[in-house]
Amino acid sequence: MEMRAVYAEVMAGLMEADKHVCIVDADLSRASGTLGLYKRFPNQMFDCGVAEQNMASIAAGLASYGFKPWIESFTPFATRRVCDQIAISILYAKRNVKVVGTDPGISAELNGGTHMSMEDVGVLRSLPGIVIFEPVDDIQLRAALPVINDYDGCVYVRLFRKELPRVFGEGYRFDLFKADILREGKDISIFVSGLPTPDTLEAAKRLEAEGVSAEVVNVHTVKPIDRETVVASARRTGAVLTVENHNVIGGLHSAVLEALAREKIPVCAVGVEDRFGEVGKLPYLRETFGLTPENVVRRAKEALKLK
């Protein structure tokens, strides 16, 4: 099932249960999967048209009226374009608004560099009080959305729109503020968020074949990062690799480095090396930006050498 279909289905349930839950969009409901909800929830679905700044502040105004708005757009327009509106109308004013950015990083594919945000987590992570969450599969997303809806504060959901291979089983128990250890290991800790998670698990298998025991931890919430799990894992293995579909500046890599600042542990990175995106399909983009199992294996070995 596509991630956006899961998102729309869960949001419909949340809106059905609470008439104050609403979605404020900026002409991308079709892309976000929520277009079908307008007829069903005419008083909870609002389209601002192509006006993202207005979308963000309208949501803050609705929140001041007791609504629980979710705003949605493509990742760059839901974040860097409305950064000041999120900072002031939403966070500084303490308005309970959720932000959904779709097509993160290379997943913008054929929309290319203008729509490919490699910096959204970095842009938002320095804003006080925001929570940043990126799901890896439909099971985690389905578990997370009601929790996020109940959380009183701004949460940014970095949402891949299409279908993703499953990482979690049906018995998965979600905690917004707790990272998930996907695989235990003793030689290196690999902290991964979002899209590259299945490839990172594949890389861990290949490392195992070469005698390296890799622990893989899904850091679904980059802010506030689960410092306890990150530090404990890093101390246990003594080497760290971060893997993210984002610039290595400002996102998961930076968050892990901050958490490990007092530890004498090498930390290497797989991610976008401070460059803009470009047009192409996912296989090409994975190769171009190094988000492949081969690159994860290579970088993991570099980290191991530094131990």
Binding site: A56, A60, L62, S64, Q85
Partner: peptide, 18 residues
């Protein structure tokens, strides 16, 4: 809460919608 110009007006429109 206002001060970043333009935003309060949108917020008022949001409140009117609410």
């Amino acid at each position: 809460t206002t001060g970043s110009l333009g935003q309060g007006f949108s917020c008022a429109v949001g409140a009117a919608l609410g």
